[in-house]
Design a protein around this nucleic acid. Structure first.
Length: 585
RNA sequence: UGGGAGAUCGUCUAAUGGUAGGACAACAGACUCUGACUCUGUUUAUCUAGGUUCGAAUCCUAGUCUCCCAGCCA
């Protein structure tokens, strides 16, 4: 009996049959095919990460963690001009925020010399050639989905000529777009990716990392395959649309054969980077689609550029930064990804599943406070003028470790306007003329008088507090249907509250079935700004402190704008509200 | 009429020839100083048609539907 590696122990201790990818990983460990699991998350730094990336991040980083392996963060920077250091910083920050750390930070550009030498090897082996066709001509030669392509007139160039031409491409002798390096595979292949795909293009653009060192840049297929091989990635996880690319991925890995040709990657060793090339395996899973959300980088960027939102971190955006500013929690997002599962079926997850996960996390972790968003004055007429006392409240109804806080109480309170109805609908548990209700942590009040202005609008309620029902007294056991939250009017702290709803008012904003512009589905009500009242213990929150404002929902002190002297709270999500649903709102 | 992939409760997702299970949602009830949370219960599914088998979501045959691919993007 051999001693088990930590990875095998991890594989054996986790329950069998989770998702198909973890099954593959477990089998590879059990069979000894791999002794450690290496994954990577390879975003292109041309935009900020969004909710869809959360799944990829949790999968690749999570599997590495579960099986005692590691995951690299690799910036896929093979297309200069589109990519930008601002996004690199944002991506790193977002991955950390989600709760993951990488083994190594790498860039595809770390391997530019490797790719170049690999290309020379392929040319030398008669597996790649320099083509003079223009982009339009190449498209015409490629054929269609149902018709085979035709060989380029340059396909049979001698190896020596290809070598010379490619070296001169690298030397910068030719203008952009005038030549490409192509893999020589099969112009009649049913899989269009195999019809002599481009491997290198000429692009005389300054690169964020390599400056002007390179006038040519590798295409995704060769760069990604060889990057994975260079880093010893065992399981290269990606989304379904790359399924058609897997034969080309394997073609690159197998024909270049990095493990068998150390001279190809000497530059990486010289640079002091760890290099243990191996053969990676690509596995595809279905991407995360969420109703009411868009995950197109182009459209997300358009929302920002055209000022439909206030930036990449606008709380209405389903970017990770937007969700963060909105107050969503990393643990809630991780729970969401876990709950959604992994498979190869195309699917759309209902947005309410995400909300449910956030609520589940926040219910356990958010201290309680009271706030009133739409105030109505309630005067307790059997308390003396100027009466004031301090009450002690638990910060969490089910977890004593949250401790307690002091809440000022007085004769004049703010309650929620919608908690009073002069003519209550059927099933209404709240305050009505002559009716009784409990004030949270205080006692039972009866509404004696409804004070109105000249237009008949309700401006105040005069109530009597039953002294025997005060908290702690035996009379407090008395049952009443409703309990209301409140804030002491003289002690209340004014705050700005931002109420957020879904950014789009249709479930599938990206589908152009009706031929209309997706922007028409923008929900103009998605952001509403209110002036509201807080109990004092909520006002001095640190930025990003989350609370449950009782009976209203979960709120977060805005990461950017909140000040103790001028509080700003964002509504993360409402509480589940079976009354509103029943009342048909 | 090319190539690739996928079809299981409303939504996700298991079952790898042997009781179609779980989660979420919905509904009903209990509890409740948050109409929250929690708890209990209920409803609902194997794309179709044949076949193999004692036994099929699973294997075979034929079909249907959905998604992806014709960048010098990733």
């Amino acid at each position: 009996m051999s001693i088990q590696t930590p990875a095998q122990t991890a594989a054996a201790s986790t329950p069998a049959h989770q998702d198909f990818i973890r099954q593959i990983v477990r089998d590879d460990l059990a069979s000894g095919r791999h002794h450690a699991i290496h994954t990577r998350f390879p975003p292109e730094p041309n935009g900020y990460l969004h909710i869809g990336h959360a799944k990829a991040i949790c999968l690749s980083f999570g599997i590495a963690r579960e099986f005692g392996g590691w995951c690299n963060l690799r910036l896929d920077d093979t297309n200069p001009g589109r990519e930008n250091p601002e996004f690199v910083a944002g991506i790193k920050e977002d991955v950390h925020w989600l709760g993951f750390d990488w083994h190594e930070l790498r860039h595809a550009s770390d391997y530019f010399e490797v790719f170049y030498r690999a290309a020379l090897k392929l040319i030398g082996d008669g597996l790649a050639y320099v083509d003079d066709l223009s982009a339009e001509e190449m498209r015409a030669y490629r054929g269609t989905l149902t018709e085979p392509g035709r060989d380029s007139p340059w396909r049979e160039r001698p190896v020596a000529e290809n070598l010379d031409l490619f070296r001169r491409m690298r030397a910068g002798e030719f203008p952009d777009g005038s030549k490409t390096l192509r893999a020589k595979i099969d112009m009649a292949a049913g899989n269009i990716n195999l019809r002599d795909p481009a491997l290198y293009r000429i692009r005389k653009v300054t690169h964020q990392n390599t400056g002007d060192a390179w006038p040519i840049y590798p295409m995704y297929d060769i760069a990604h395959a060889l990057s994975d091989a260079m880093e010893g990635i065992t399981h290269s996880l990606c989304t379904l649309e790359f399924e058609d690319h897997r034969p080309l991925y394997d073609w690159c890995v197998d024909h270049v054969d990095l493990p068998g040709h150390p001279e190809l990657w000497q530059s990486v060793v010289d640079a002091g980077l760890e290099a243990r090339p191996a053969k990676p395996r690509q596995i595809e899973f279905s991407r995360l689609n969420l109703s009411y959300c868009i995950t197109s980088k182009r459209k997300l960027a358009q929302l920002v550029a055209e000022h439909h939102v206030d930036g990449w971190d606008d709380p209405r955006m389903n970017t990770l930064r937007g969700l963060r500013r909105r107050g969503f929690t990393p643990a809630g997002l991780r729970l969401f990804v876990e709950r959604v599962g992994v498979s190869k079926q195309n699917s759309v997850i209902d947005y309410s599943v995400l909300e449910g996960c956030i609520r589940e996390d926040l219910d356990a972790t958010a201290p309680r406070r009271m706030a009133v968003l739409d105030p109505l004055r309630l005067v307790i007429i059997n308390l003396p003028e100027g009466h004031s006392e301090t009450l002690r409240f638990a910060n969490h109804p089910k977890d004593e470790s949250f401790g307690t806080r002091e809440v000022p109480f007085s004769r004049e309170l703010w309650i929620e306007r919608e908690d009073f109805a002069e003519v209550p609908p059927k099933g209404f548990h709240r305050l009505r003329p002559g009716g009784e209700v409990r004030l949270r942590g205080v006692g039972i009040v009866r509404c004696d008088e409804v004070v109105k202005d000249a237009d008949g609008g309700v401006v105040a309620l005069h109530c009597t507090l039953d002294p025997d029902s005060r908290q702690g007294l035996p009379g407090a056991e008395r049952k009443v249907k409703g309990t209301l939250h409140w804030v002491s009017a003289p002690h209340a702290v004014a705050t700005e509250v931002r109420l957020y709803e879904r950014l789009f008012n249709v479930a599938a904003p990206e589908s152009d079935e009706d031929g209309r512009d997706w922007l028409v589905h923008l929900n103009p009500e998605a952001k509403r700004v209110l002036k509201a009242w807080l109990e004092p213990a909520a006002a001095d929150a640190a930025p990003e402190q989350r609370y449950q404002f009782e009976r209203l929902g979960y709120f977060v002190a805005d990461r950017v704008d909140h000040r103790a002297q001028a509080p700003v709270f964002n509504r993360i999500v409402t509480l589940r509200d079976t009354w509103a649903r029943q009342a048909g709102h």
